[in-house]
């Protein structure tokens, strides 16, 4: 089976930053993503308990490197200063490359 190389962008952030990130995704024409609630510890302390608004969320987006770099740049520029966010890239392979353009 032929596999195609694409990138996976994983963003872990406070739940209240989710809306802003999804707006950035749709601005760059990315419609597919997966998100789930998570807990963890970091520079802003243990997060995930208490109010729903203080939970953390993890968003995974698979797309081309070029598009994801634009997205990451925009997140870094507008959201890094005000929200608890980390993000990283990884290499993944997919079967149907046309789904992730």
């Amino acid at each position: 089976m032929k596999l195609f190389d694409v990138k996976l962008l994983t963003v872990t952030c406070e739940i209240l930053a989710q809306k802003a990130i999804l707006e950035i995704l749709s601005k760059h024409g990315i419609t597919g993503y997966t998100s789930y609630e998570v807990e963890g510890n970091g520079s802003k302390g243990i997060r995930g308990h208490g109010f729903k608004n203080e939970k953390n969320i993890k968003i995974e987006i698979v797309s081309t490197e070029e598009k994801l770099k634009d997205v990451a740049e925009e997140i870094a520029r507008y959201l890094f200063s005000d929200f608890a966010i980390i993000l990283y890239f990884s290499d993944v392979q997919v079967i149907r490359s046309e789904k992730f353009i």
């Binding site: 406070e14 209240l16 809306k19 109010f51 608004n53 959201l79």
Partner: peptide, 9 residues
Amino acid sequence: PAVLRHAIP
């Protein structure tokens, strides 16, 4: 927090 985190981040 829900309102202000968006409006005055």
